[in-house]
Amino acid sequence: MTAVLEVSGLKTHFFTHAGVVKAVDGVDFSVNKGEVMGLVGESGSGKSITGFSIIGLIDQPGRIVEGAIRFNGDDIAGAPEETLKSIRGNRISMIFQDPMMTLNPVLRIDTQMMEAILAHEAMPKRQAWERCRDALGLVGIPSPEERLRAYPHQLSGGMRQRVSIAIAFLNKPDLIIADEPTTALDVTIQAQIIYEAQKLTKQTGTAMIWITHDLAVVAGLADRISVMYAGKIVEQGETDDVIDRPLHPYTVGLLGSVPTANNRGERLFQIEGMTPNMLALPKGCAFSPRCGFASEACQVPPPVEQVASRELRCYHPQSQVAAE
């Protein structure tokens, strides 16, 4: 399989007055054509910054300090703005969390959709408009002509997020980064949106990175899962493997906090302790203060290790089966 995206050794740091925030600190992963990768982690773990680094939208005081982002073979980390602009929204598009905030409230849907096409391709407006209309039809929006004339506030939250998905697919990109696109929606709508997105990736062969803090969301959607903690990917592997036999204590904790048929009625497990302060990370394994399995060895940052078909940053993998 050919990798659409290969991220290696990516480090994106923010140089704030209070100190350096290592939001992304040595991240490696790759996404193949047509593959969906789930990027999971708690709030502040660096998921969004990873996504924004890929499309080159890191603002002051942040910057990519190290690493390569190979997109279709070319390293686009630190590429000139012109190059990045021609990729954004065209070869790599992004869906944001809150459709309420991401669509401009004072511009009509057609304006906001057509500009995504016209920014990359010169064509008659009519033709661009037709493409937008068809795209809205594809994501299951009834009477698209009418919706195109609407302003964002005239659409429901779910409808707006469908519009964002339609925009993401407009230019038939190679990769879509969906940053918690369903977090702001209620559960039924969430399921519909996931369904539409999944259907479209299958149809178009577009690769996707689905960012979420909810393992349950990606369990049914992603081919592979990367679990992120404090700027590093701590466990990465095939979805089924990771869900069935989590190796990293943090993944185990995340899974324990997901309601399932088995633990119904029981008290949900919660990972102890607070999300880490990114300005003062513990020495060694960043998870150690919250980890029940921490040992002397964990005072040294765990390197990435290949365990079975998985990549792992932990000295004490949990599931015995997989560890063999």
Binding site: L57, S86, I87, G89, N90, S93, M94, F96, A116
Partner: peptide, 8 residues
Amino acid sequence: KYARAKGV
């Protein structure tokens, strides 16, 4: 940010 992400 979204408009920038669209390449506008």
